[in-house]
């Protein structure tokens, strides 16, 4: 598996190479690719934690098994920007070790050239998701 830093750098370069409208297209591709939560969570939505920093009802849950991190998100279809943020974090962090996730850079949301495309304000939700993922991982290690 590519290291988190290498994967992040590649993704950052991909975004940086695009025009602002193309960055939004890529973000929408991520939004469409966000996996659905498994059935045991759709039946127990109370297990997920609300990400209050987001403008939409976003919930997440981190599961740790054998030192491997699995991340689940629910984000409404009507909030594609937020889905895109969740999906980026999912693609970077899901399946990694506890240490990799716990030490992931807090600057991931700032490193993808998205500020000009979506506004710094909207990026706050992504920071909230990342902080909550890292906190849950620490609690469950």
């Amino acid at each position: 598996m590519t290291s988190l830093n290498d994967q992040l750098e590649t993704l950052a370069q991909d975004f940086a190479a695009l025009s602002v409208p193309q960055r939004l297209d890529l973000l929408l591709e991520f939004a469409d690719a966000l996996p659905e939560v498994p059935q045991h969570l759709t039946e127990h939505p109370d297990l997920l934690e609300r990400v209050v920093e987001c403008q939409s009802p976003v919930f997440l849950l981190v599961e740790v098994q054998d030192d491997v991190v699995t991340i689940h998100f629910t984000v409404p279809r009507e909030a594609p920007t937020t889905r895109g943020f969740a999906s980026i974090l999912h693609s970077l962090l899901n399946g990694r070790t506890v240490d990799e996730v716990a030490t992931a850079s807090d600057l991931i949301p700032d490193s993808l050239s998205l500020s000009a495309a979506v506004s710094p304000l909207r990026l706050r939700g992504m920071r909230g998701m990342l902080a909550r993922i890292k906190r849950q991982v620490e609690q469950k290690r």
Binding site: L28, A31, Q55, R77, E78, T81, G84, V118, S119, R122
Partner: peptide, 27 residues
């Protein structure tokens, strides 16, 4: 919109987008 990607997911045919934050505000 509040969520600026909503336009890209599907908009009224022929409609253009103006975003309150990235278009209307001084950067």
């Amino acid at each position: 919109d509040e969520d600026l990607l909503l336009y890209q997911t599907g908009h009224i045919p022929g409609a253009v987008r103006i975003d309150w934050h990235t278009d209307l505000n001084d950067p």
